[in-house]
Measured scan of single mutants.
Amino acid sequence: YKIYPYDSLIVTNSISVKLPKDVDRTRLERHLSPEEFQEVFGMSIEEFDRLALWKRNDLKKKALLF
């Protein structure tokens, strides 16, 4: 996945969300650098992957990456 800054990946309720063209809309968190991922989620990507799907989705919603 290509890395993008968190600010360019957050999704708000506005209709005209302009995400970069090559971003996987269903896995926005994968486009964060490991350092920024840790900062946003408070855990590593590996720890995040071990969580239940509902928990990952809940965290993504709170981080505006859903």
Rank of each mutant, 00 (worst) to 15 (best):
D22Q: 04
P34A: 13
P20F: 04
L65P: 01
Y1E: 06
D7K: 14
E35V: 13
L64V: 04
L65S: 00
L51W: 02
N57V: 12
Y4N: 01
L59K: 05
W54S: 13
L53V: 12
S8V: 14
K18V: 15
V40E: 02
S16L: 13
L19I: 08
F48T: 00
S14I: 12
T26I: 06
S8K: 13
S14P: 13
K60R: 07
Y6C: 02
L59D: 01
Y1F: 12
L51H: 06
K61F: 08
V23T: 05
L65N: 01
L53G: 09
A63W: 05
H31K: 01
D58Q: 11
I10H: 04
E46Y: 10
K61H: 07
L19R: 05
K18H: 15
I15S: 15
M43D: 00
R30E: 03
D49R: 05
A63Q: 04
F48C: 00
I15Y: 06
K21A: 15
V23C: 04
R30I: 05
T26R: 09
K21N: 15
Y4G: 01
D58N: 11
L59H: 04
I10M: 09
G42M: 11
F66W: 14
I45F: 11
K21Y: 10
R56G: 03
S8W: 14
V40Q: 06
D7V: 15
F66C: 12
V11T: 12
E29H: 02
L19P: 07
V23K: 02
P34V: 15
L51M: 09
V11P: 07
N57M: 10
R25H: 12
S14W: 05
L51A: 04
G42V: 06
L28P: 02
V17H: 15
S44F: 09
D7Q: 15
K60G: 01
E35H: 11
S33Q: 05
T26W: 10
E47S: 10
K62Q: 10
V40K: 05
R27I: 05
N57T: 10
E36V: 08
E39S: 13
K21P: 15
T26M: 13
E46P: 08
F66D: 08
P5D: 05
I15V: 14
R50N: 10
S14D: 15
R50E: 13
K2V: 11
M43Y: 04
G42A: 11
K55D: 11
R56W: 02
T12G: 13
H31W: 03
K18T: 15
S44E: 11
S33C: 08
Y4S: 01
R25P: 15
D49C: 06
D22W: 05
A63M: 07
L51Q: 07
E36W: 03
L59S: 04
E47D: 12
V11D: 06
R25V: 14
K18A: 15
E47T: 10
T26N: 15
L9Y: 00
S8M: 15
I3Q: 08
D58A: 12
L28G: 00
P5R: 05
F66P: 05
E47Y: 09
A63E: 03
D58V: 11
N57P: 00
V11E: 07
D7W: 12
R30Q: 06
S14G: 14
I45G: 06
L53I: 11
A52C: 11
K60Q: 02
D24M: 05
L53M: 13
Y6M: 03
E36S: 08
L53S: 10
E47L: 09
E35L: 11
E47H: 10
P34Q: 14
K18D: 15
L64S: 10
P20H: 04
V23D: 01
M43V: 05
D24H: 07
F41W: 00
R50H: 10
V23I: 09
A63K: 09
K60H: 02
L32D: 00
K21Q: 14
V40W: 04
I45S: 08
F48H: 01
E47F: 08
G42I: 05
S8F: 15
N13H: 12
T12P: 09
I3E: 06
F41K: 00
L59Q: 03
D24W: 05
A63R: 06
D24A: 04
K62H: 09
R50K: 14
P5M: 04
D58S: 11
Q38F: 15
Y4D: 01
H31P: 01
E36H: 05
E39T: 14
E39C: 12
K55A: 10
L59M: 12
D49L: 07
K2Y: 06
I45H: 08
W54H: 12
L28Y: 02
K2I: 10
D58L: 11
L51Y: 06
E39I: 14
A52Y: 07
K62I: 10
P5F: 03
F48S: 00
D7L: 15
E46G: 11
W54P: 12
L28E: 01
E36K: 06
S44T: 14
L28K: 03
K61W: 07
E29F: 01
R27K: 12
K21F: 11
L9M: 04
P20Y: 04
L64Q: 13
R30H: 04
Y4T: 02
K21M: 13
E47K: 09
I3Y: 09
F48K: 00
L32I: 07
F41Q: 00
E47G: 06
K62G: 09
K18F: 09
L53H: 10
K2C: 07
F48G: 00
I3S: 06
F37A: 02
L59T: 02
Y1H: 12
R25K: 12
I3D: 03
K21I: 13
T12R: 10
D22R: 04
Q38Y: 14
F48L: 02
L65Y: 01
D49G: 08
R50M: 13
I45R: 10
K61R: 13
